[in-house]
Every structure is written in C-alpha cells, then in structure tokens.
Nucleic acid binder design. Structure first.
Lengths: 332, 332
DNA sequence: TGGAAGTCTGTGAACGTTCACAGAGTGGGA
DNA sequence: TCCCACTCTGTGAACGTTCACAGACTTCCA
C-alpha cells in the first residue's frame, strides 16, 4: 500500500534512479527508449514525485507565502482579496509553485512568518495591504528573498516593488469630473493615512483643487461603512453647504449616502457623491455610485509577474501603476 | 552565511543531535542542564527547524490544503471567504500547520489537487463551496485523508463532515416572519440548485408555506446581483400582485430591489423584501435589508475543529448546523 | 586510424531531520 | 549487596530526491 518512489519507477522501467530523475526534470541526454520506458512506468505505478525530498536537496521550497496584514483588515475590501488570491494561485500553479497563506497581525504572527521564511520554506513573499511602518517588511527584505507587494508599501516604495492602480491619477479624474459638473464646494472622505489609497487619493484630490481645497472639507475614515457615515456627519456639521463629496472607497461612500439621506440631502441634486474601487456595493446603493474603477485582476497579474521575475533571478523589477477608469452612474 | 542546522546547535550546546531533536519536540527524558544549553544554543545560532527535512522522515506534511471551487465562484460571497481563510490560518497556526490554497476549476486543476494530496503534501483538506457532483470529492475521500467541508457537500452529507448554518431553519425564520407580517403572496428567489444554500433555503421556504407556496412564485438565481434583478423581473411579470419576496442572498436581494424600484414598487410598503447572509450589502441598500444572519466566524471555527479532530485520528466527527438569527431592518 | 566532442547511463553522496536502539548512569527495594 | 527500573544520551539508519562525477558508447573530423 506504500506510495511508489523513484526507485520503484526505475525498477519498473528497467533504468536507474538517475535516469528517472532526468526524465522527471526534463534534462537533456535521455534516450528516447529510456524516456518512453520511464514515462510508461510512471503511469503504471501512479508515481508522483515527493516534493519534500526534492526540496530538501534543491534547497527550493516550491512555494510562495502570501502575507495578509491584519490590523486593517478592512483595507483591501473583500472582492480584492478574492481576485488577488485566485490570480496568485493560478499564476503560481503554472510554475508548479503553491501558495501558502499567513497572517501578520501581532508580533507573534510576524515572528511566525519570519521563522517560516528564514527556515527556507518560501521562494518568495507576496505582501497584501501592508501598512506603513510594519517592521515585518524590513525584516523580510533582510532575508534576501524576493518580496513584492500588491499595492505600494508606504515608505518602502523604492525597496519593495509593487503593482497598483494609479491612485493619485484616479483621484484626480474624479475630482476634475466633479469640478467640471459645476460643483463648487467639494469635500473628501479619505482612507487611513498610513495606506497608499488613503494618502495618494487625497493627493490627487488636492492636486486638482489646489488651494481651493480647504482643510475644513477633508475628513478621514478607515475604509469601513461606519466611518463613512460619521465622516459625512462631521463634514455636514462643519460645512452644511457642501455640494459634492468624494469618498476614497465605495464602501465609505455608501456610508456617506446614508448620512446624507438622513440629513435630507438629495443625491445627486443637492450633493454629488463619488466613490472609488467600483466594487459590488457601487451598484447596490441607490442611486448607483459614480466611481473610479481600478483594474484589480490586472494589478494582481502584474504583481505576480514581478514576483516570478524576481524568483527567476531578476535583479530589479520596476513597479507599475495601472490607469484607472471613471465610471459615471447616478450619484453625480 | 549558511543557515544553522541541528548539528550546529548540537555543537554549540555541547550535546548530540538526538538531544537537540528531543528538546525541539518536547520529548521526555532530557536533563534540565541539556535542555537549557540547547535552548541557549538555539537562541544564539538563530536556528529554526527545517520542516522539509522533518516532513521527509515523519511522513507528515505540516500543512492543510484549502480547495476553492471555481465554477460558481460567486457561491460563497466574499465576506465568507475572507472570514473562512483568516479563521483557518489562525486555527492551523496554533498547531503549527500551514494553509496551502488551491483551486479546483477544470479537470487540470482537480488533477493538480489530487496529485498534491496523493503526493502526501497535505495532512488534511478543507473544501470550500464545492458543488454537487464534483468528482474531486470522491477522489479525495478515496485517498484516505481527513476531508472536511465548510458548508455541506450536496449528495455527500454523510461522507464529508461539515459545519454550516441551519440553512433550512434560517429560511423558515424569514418565511414565517413574512407571513406574520400579514404578507399574502410571498415569492422566493433561490440560489443555484446544486448548492446547499440553494436547495435548503428553498426547503425552509416551502416548509412554512406548504401548499400555498405555488411554483409560480419561485425563481432561481445564481447568487449574483444580476440574477436577482432578472429573477425579480420574471416574478413581477408572472405575478404582479406579489407583496413579499425572500431572496436567498443579500446580493440577490439587492438586485431584486433595483428591479422593484424600476417597476415602481415601494419597499416595504408594496413589497416586503428579505435577504440572507447579513453581509455588507444588507446595510448599503436603501431601505436596509431585513435578513438572516449566519454565524460565519463560528462556522469556520467549527469546521476547523472537525478537521483538527480528524487529523488527530478521530474516526467519525459529527457535522454541525449552527442556528441563524433574523435581523429585522427597514425592507419589511 | 586516432582522438576529441558529444551523448547517454549508473552510482555515491548529500540535503536535515526523526526514530529506534543500545548503553551508561542513578536510585531504591528485596 | 544485587538487580531492576527509570532516566538520560549518543549513534546509525532511514526518509526520497537531485547533483556531480565517472565511465561507456557513438560520431565525426583531421
């Protein structure tokens, strides 16, 4: 009942262990006769290579670890997660690499990740929604293992390559659009200021508005619905004559919408409302949200391409920022 | 620059390889002196055990694979994914097991999963949103490895243990509630009929309505927003006097809401609308959705408990169905 | 015809652990 | 006092691969 090993295959094929190994790894210098016999023996015995044994000698683990940041578990909204994970699995599988998931929440978690990677159990690391100042980032970088991030790592843009959307440009698109619609008093609800989406979407906003962007019209949220609601309330209280709001995420926009409605403001007649992400909620609110779409699938693809290049030995792979698209619906 | 091995630690501690191994694995029969010296040497050298080498001899992989079903990628809505994955990582990490993600979409994918598991690279399998008739389920079961599913596997309820919410009971709660509210013509939008949520939520619906539940008032969706929209349109066309709709998911309910609004129906005045899941969208629609909450986190917890018990050698672990909770909001 | 270059094969060693075993030392009860 | 049981330690073998090397055989050109 034991699993067949390379020896069993060799015996069945009438060749040596070495030849079977060569066939397995597609090496040159194997006669067709030997190759055929081996392939047949593999099929007959139902042999499947033991990666563990292989890893032990090759010193490559055959897997990549994806590190999920915990504290801001809402940062990457769920659709992003799903897309990123699926894309990662796909791309890695093509190369016979497997994806191991880990969480980096408290110090214990970080320690576990570091031990894992230092133990040589990963050929590369994929960072997801890492927040500014996370000590794990530098620690991983010191291990000299390929590390890439899905979305920039604030403060480490030049050391950890990444793929992301053009956060700043996207925010500019939305802001410019609101201005063009004739809105005069445009407020913004930002994301947390230790995330790229938080910082750069605000930058895009102020880029367009210049000094007209008064600090009074900016409130910070934490990506959650609830934070959108309360940020909107603060804005209304301070400046009741707001006629447009740009929320840094659709989810926060949906929260803002609730507050606006409760305050008797009509959207879009009294107040225009813009979101970001083009996630599912953008379609489920009423009115449907005008928003900025980011090419999630492609971002994930590019992130993986970078990682694979690094694993293949590339020295420096440039980061990429993909263009966003303004999606106009009924809320503006 | 090489990673320290158990030999290096042994040398540094002045003990033998065997003793270090015993310390590492918490075996009995290690003198305190030896233990202390070893622990110190481990700290000094920065040693971390090589799981690959360990796996090779112990024949245990130290990892569990989570299999995501692809075709119905919308089945388990995203919040579920995120919660399940996080909970899984957590629970496994406590036992020093790692989580490997795989996709089971086409035959090639399934083959890869099977090869991986047959190769002895997983100590257990965690199935997510597997649909009825998936050949992988039986194939995995034949490998004689612990397999558990998050949510029942239709047709294999007695062979693959699972944790889920009480789908049927939850649907009964909602239906009964709509009846109590005085609604006379209650329609249902179901999920796909090869998923537990699709089948059992419909069962709960007909349980309560009995013969009053005419087939004319039942339409099938595929969990997506769009399918909710079109199912609602078909229902309205067939029975314009509907005064309540129970959608098997919040997302489909949100689609139904769009259609109702377009048709000039007021919610809840003309038509009451109920959802299922209590996901994020339930709060972002207007009016906010009355829905059935399922205890996602606990479902994930219980699923993992079952898996860990099986890995520990338990023969049969019973499946569990956790109670749901009716959440009344503004749509009814 | 000789030998260099190229093709193909088998074998020993290594990767870093755990496990089983054997042996040494200690203490206590008959 | 002797022996048995218990505690502790070190060592060889094994897990299933890949890699480097050595050797055999073929081909082709000078």
């Amino acid at each position: 009942m034991k699993r067949p090993t390379i020896h069993d295959v060799a015996a069945a094929a009438g060749v040596s262990r070495g030849t079977v190994s060569r066939v397995l790894n597609g090496d040159r210098y194997v006669s067709t006769a030997a190759r055929l016999a081996t392939e047949r023996a593999i099929a007959e015995t139902g042999y499947v290579v033991n990666r563990t044994a292989r890893s032990l000698v090759t010193q490559r683990s055959g897997s990549v670890v994806m590190v999920l940041s915990e504290p801001h578990e809402k940062i990457f909204e769920d659709p992003n997660y799903s897309t990123s994970i699926r894309t990662s699995i796909r791309r890695l599988a093509e190369r016979d690499l497997s994806l191991v998931m880990m969480i980096a929440g408290d110090a214990g978690d970080r320690d576990r990740v570091l031990r894992y990677v230092k133990g040589g159990h990963a050929d590369g690391v994929l960072l997801l929604s890492t927040h500014a100042g996370d000590p794990l980032v530098d620690a991983l970088h010191d291990v000299h293992i390929p590390v890439v991030s899905l979305g920039a790592v604030i403060g480490r843009e030049n050391v950890i390559p990444y793929a992301a959307c053009d956060e700043r440009g996207g925010a500019q698109q939305m802001t410019r659009y609101l201005v063009e619609q004739g809105r005069k008093k445009i407020a913004m609800i930002t994301g947390p200021m230790d995330t790229p989406g938080g910082i750069q979407r605000l930058e895009g906003f102020t880029d367009v508005l210049g000094r007209k962007a008064s600090k009074k019209l900016i409130e910070h949220g934490d990506w959650t619905r609830l934070s959108g609601e309360s940020a909107m309330a603060r804005l209304l209280e301070r400046s009741p004559d707001i006629d447009a709001v740009f929320a840094a995420s659709d989810v926060m926009a949906s929260g803002a919408l609730t507050t606006l409605r409760a305050a008797g403001r009509r959207v879009p007649e009294d107040v225009a409302l813009g979101g970001f992400d083009d996630s599912d909620v953008a379609m489920s609110t009423h009115p449907a949200l005008t928003t900025v779409r980011q090419p999630l699938a492609e971002i994930a693809e590019r992130t993986l391409s970078i990682l694979l290049d690094l694993i293949d030995g590339a020295e420096h792979v440039p980061s990429v920022a993909l263009p966003t698209q303004l999606i106009v619906r009924d809320s503006t």
